[in-house]
Each structure stands twice: as structure tokens, then as C-alpha cells.
């Protein structure tokens, strides 16, 4: 299976379409950084809203950590499309090219085929996340410098000391990777039911949009299914930036307010990944290859 995995990786990184995602991320992040460099002060005032009248802030609010947080907030909605672009093509693309029959008549099992292909799609997803982390975090630090991060939540604000942030980003990116691998698993699962990648890409994005609407609307009927929808848990990376406070209402360094929420969400996402990949293997095993 290792050979098959290496072959799949080789094929992914030999395709020009693979690099669209990397180019798109570079362009988007650069544009956001440029915008914040030019008009960062106005943006901070907009984010703070009324707080700017009651709060006196020393230091640099528009720092690299804050910029990275903004970028992540914006991009984690768009990245799934770029992930689906590759993951949804993993099986449907082979059917479309006619290479599926050639691959599956080789001495490899269909389960090995599914696992190797999914692992290759996972590597692509992780590399894209690493690239985003590099651009959004390290390049932002280089451009904007570092300071404490000040985040405005629904009915409170959080301040985290600059020396307490890097590990949180590490955790957030790990979690974002898990969320994006879940998106890859959805696209990958749908990929086997089509003979070109457009259908699975559109279907994946439609599922994400519809589920996100369900996740954000507070309607009793939806509330019952919300805990089981992967979109509800995809945003749990933000929990890394919610800290516990002491009696003086000061942030406790190294703390997370709801670590159980992160663990629960991670487990649900992992369950989705395992379930979708297992179902992919099950359906592909039963499928007659007619392409």
C-alpha cells in the first residue's frame, strides 16, 4: 500500500490544478495583509466598536497574531473549496480519465486503494494548512510584529499575552487540519459516485453551506441535529483563544476555557473521517467499474 500511497502523492503533485490552491491562498492572504497594513487602524476601531470609547489600549493591537486570527476566521470558510478541488477528484477523476479500470485491475485491494488515495488527499490538505500557517502567522509576524492579542467575543473581550499565544496557534492549526481533513473525507466519499469531479465538488460545498446554516440558526428542530453535524465542530479551533480567568478577572496563562469542547469536537470530526472513509471502501468494493 505504501507504493500506492507514493504513486498517489506523485500524481497529485504533478498536476497543475494542485497548485491553484497554494496560489489562491498566497494571493488572498497577501491581499488581507496589505489591506490591514494600510487600513489596520480603522479595522481595529470597527472591531472594537463601542469598546474603543470605554477602553484604553496600550500597545499594538494590529499585530501579527491578531492579523493571523483575522485571516483564519476569513479563510477557513473558503479553504474547503480548495480542499474539495483535489479530494473530490481522487476517484471521480480516475473514472473520468478511464484510468480507474487500469488501476483496479492491478494486484491491489480496493480497500488499499481507498486508504492510499485518502491518505494522499490528507497529505495535500495538511501541506495546504502548513502553507496557510506560514503565510498567515509567520509572514504576518514579520510584517506586523508581535504583541498581546485582544479579541472581542459576543459579550466579552479576551486578552492573551504574547508569550502565551504560539502554542494556541499550534493547537488551532492542528484542529483546523482535522476540520479540513473532514471536508476532504466528505468530498472523497462523494467522489466515487461520479465520473467527473464537478458534481462532488458542488455537492461538498452545498453540504457545507447547508450544514453551516443549520449550525448557526437557533431553531429547535435544527438544535437536535446540530451536535452531529461536522460543520458545528469545524470552528472549535477558536476555543484555543478563550482563556480562563482568575478571581481578579485576569487571564490565566496556558489555560483554555473549554478544553472538553475541543476534545469532543475533535472526536466527532475523527468519527466522521473514519466513517466516511470506511463507507467509501464499502461502496467501492461493491461497485462495478464500467468507466
Amino acid at each position: 500500500m505504501y507504493t500506492l500511497f507514493k504513486v498517489e502523492l506523485y500524481k497529485i503533485f504533478k498536476r497543475p490544478r494542485t497548485y491553484i490552491a497554494f496560489a489562491a491562498m498566497t494571493a488572498l492572504i497577501t491581499i488581507i495583509q496589505l489591506g490591514l497594513k494600510v487600513d489596520g487602524k480603522e479595522y481595529i476601531e470597527f472591531v472594537l466598536g463601542d469598546l474603543s470609547n470605554t477602553l484604553q489600549v496600550d500597545g499594538k493591537l494590529c499585530n501579527g497574531y491578531f492579523v493571523c486570527f483575522c485571516i483564519l476566521n476569513l479563510l477557513l470558510i473558503h479553504v474547503p473549496l480548495l480542499i474539495a478541488l483535489i479530494a473530490a477528484d481522487m476517484i471521480s477523476g480516475e473514472a473520468n480519465m478511464g484510468t480507474l479500470r487500469l488501476l483496479l485491475s492491478k494486484p491491489i485491494t480496493r480497500t488499499q486503494f481507498v486508504v492510499a488515495k485518502f491518505l494522499a488527499a490528507t497529505v495535500y490538505t495538511l501541506l495546504l494548512l502548513v502553507w496557510i500557517a506560514f503565510l498567515a502567522l509567520f509572514v504576518s509576524i514579520f510584517i506586523f510584529g508581535t504583541d498581546d492579542i485582544f479579541l472581542v467575543k459576543n459579550n466579552y473581550a479576551v486578552q492573551i499575552a504574547s508569550n502565551d499565544i504560539m502554542w494556541r496557534y499550534l493547537g488551532a492549526f492542528f484542529f483546523a487540519a482535522l476540520a479540513m481533513v473532514t471536508v476532504a473525507a466528505v468530498a472523497f466519499f462523494l467522489s466515487q459516485f461520479a465520473e467527473n469531479s464537478i458534481g462532488p465538488i458542488v455537492a461538498t460545498m452545498s453540504i457545507i453551506i447547508v450544514f453551516t446554516i443549520f449550525s448557526t440558526m437557533s431553531i429547535p428542530l435544527f438544535n437536535k441535529i446540530k451536535p452531529f453535524m461536522f460543520t458545528t465542530h469545524m470552528v472549535a479551533w477558536k476555543e484555543f483563544f478563550d482563556v480562563r480567568v482568575n478571581a481578579d478577572n485576569e487571564s490565566i496563562a496556558g489555560s483554555i476555557q473549554r478544553p472538553d469542547k475541543i476534545i469532543n469536537s475533535a472526536l466527532i470530526l475523527i468519527a466522521h473521517i473514519v466513517g466516511l472513509v470506511s463507507l467509501s471502501a464499502y461502496f467501492l468494493k461493491k461497485k462495478d467499474i464500467l468507466s
Binding site: K11, K14, R15, P16, M97, G98, T99, R101, L102, S105
Partner: peptide, 13 residues
């Protein structure tokens, strides 16, 4: 060793 109908291959390779 088999060739099934058209020899469809990876065009970008």
C-alpha cells in the same frame, strides 16, 4: 497484463 478497450492514461504525465 491487460489492456481494456481504450488505453486511457494520465495525460499530464
Amino acid at each position: 497484463g491487460a489492456m481494456i478497450e481504450r488505453p486511457d492514461l494520465y495525460k499530464y504525465l
